[in-house]
Amino acid sequence: MDQLNQLPCPVLVTDRMGKILAANIDLLAIVGGSAEQWQQKSMDKLFPLASRIFLQTHVWPMLLRQESVRELYLHLNDSNNQRIPMMMNCQMGQFEGADSYYWVFFVALQRSLFEAELLQARGDAQRMAASLAQSHKELKELHSQLSQRTHMVETANIELTELSQTDPLTGMANRRALAIAITHWQSQVTDGAHASLLLVDVDHFKAVNDQYGHDEGDCVLTALARQLQASMRVSDLAVRYGGEEFALWLPFADHTGAECTAQRVHDHVREVKVAGNSITVSIGVATSSDARSPELLQQLIKHSDEAVYQAKASGRNRTVHFE
């Protein structure tokens, strides 16, 4: 007992059920009373209720299993019934010849304040993280809605683009597509590159419409469109330019190349028949080497138009090249 009193900290000795066998003077200085008074009492009485539960649910199971516990945080009740924060170690040993438990305490007033602040900060951080996670989730939902919306708009745009560049009757490209194709080509070539435009006008188309009706006229135009497509190179573009007028855009085609294509058009068009008679076309050709000129499209249209006029005037079913 004297030895326990020489230790510079509160010490308690209990049996394996927590019955007090000895308490040193440092411990008595905190909890009050005399060693005799506490003897044979349950050590539970030294602790506030919360600490008693912790002792019974956490400390004893550990202690009975592994014979020692280290650095546990508990409260002792002092003689004025105030809670004193304590760090505590406990270890099994011998006391008066029997297995016993030695409990050593350290008052931890400062540490307990510091730890309480730490825990408070941790709680705050956790709440903040939870609200961040919530915001993050909402943002992700919004983002996914936005991407979905964007995708829909993109799809609609593609459809609109196709519609705006397509002739509904023949499914061919239209004037707008022609302008786009030429501008696109111009942006990629050096000045001096050749290109040609064929303007193809159906001969006596008004007569077909008048004689056989507009439905038949539409059939002729559709069939003609197919034949025009068949007479082009892969890089060429055929568009329906007006009522019975088609244009063929031939990038990099010079005078000879354009004439060649024009001849193929005449040949293919013969396949289209109305009441057993082949359809014929008049073709005006314009070739230019002003590849970078902003006036290129207008110039080609103007010149090929004049050439068509001449082809018509000189008897139709022929090609005239603008000179």
């Binding site: 506030p48 919360a50 600490s51 945080y73 409260h75 730890e115 825990l119």
Partner: peptide
């Protein structure tokens, strides 16, 4: 036990889980 005793246990657990 009173409710405050049990709240006290939860905070003791927190401090011991540090």
């Amino acid at each position: 036990f009173e409710r405050e005793d049990l709240e006290g246990l939860l905070s003791l657990m927190d401090q011991n889980y540090i």
